[in-house]
């Protein structure tokens, strides 16, 4: 089947999609957007988190056909033309990136959290990111990154 959707602001199309494919597979293997990650492919780890019509979802749990005509934003679509999004910059500056496999999903999830709540408490950050597994960092520097991004974004950064 053919799938057409708006992805990171661009109209994109994939042909010969097998109906059993997930949105994650189509993004990674058919549309050249491998930034969303394939850590568990069953909705447990959050590493494939993307926006679907503005709502964060696990792309591995969305059937390819469900993406038809929808608006999708992936980690590849968050940075500006000349600079990183403040959430991306904060993950770098806080040392929240080690192997980086969880990073795209955590960045989308943090992007969503801070768009809803400009000044989350630590408990709120933990709740919001509880669906994103990280095996390298022990999460301390991820919390640092979210706090840093929030303060910079409040300051207009």
């Amino acid at each position: 089947m053919r799938i057409a959707a708006t992805i990171n602001g661009q109209q994109m199309q994939a042909d010969d999609v097998w109906p059993g494919e997930s949105l994650l597979y189509v993004l990674r293997e058919r549309l050249g957007l491998p930034g969303s990650k394939n850590a568990c492919e069953q909705g447990e780890c959050g590493s494939c988190t993307v926006y679907l019509d503005g709502i964060p979802v696990c792309a591995c749990l969305v059937a390819a056909g469900q993406a038809q005509g929808r608006d999708i934003v992936t980690v590849e679509g968050l940075a500006g033309p000349s600079q990183l999004h403040p959430v991306q910059q904060a993950f770098l500056d806080a040392g929240a990136v080690q192997c980086g496999f969880c990073t795209p999903g955590l960045i989308v999830a943090t992007h969503d959290l801070l768009s809803r709540d400009a000044e989350p408490t630590d408990l709120e950050i933990r709740e919001a990111l509880a669906g994103n597994l990280c095996r390298c960092t022990g999460y301390e520097k991820i919390l640092d990154a979210v706090r840093l991004a929030a303060s910079r974004m409040r300051a207009g950064g």
């Binding site: 990674r28 293997e29 050249g32 957007l33 491998p34 930034g35 969303s36 990650k37 394939n38 992936t74 980690v75 590849e76 968050l78 940075a79 990183l84 991306q88 910059q89 993950f91 770098l92 040392g95 990136v97 980086g100 496999f101 990073t103 795209p104 960045i107």
Partner: peptide, 22 residues
């Protein structure tokens, strides 16, 4: 505290892991 040279690639989804090769 030098910055990671692969950091920007990793936060933008551009870093090529084994499963991303094509």
């Amino acid at each position: 505290n030098a910055a990671r040279p692969d950091g920007t690639l990793k936060v933008t989804g551009q870093f090529a892991y084994g499963s991303d090769l094509w």
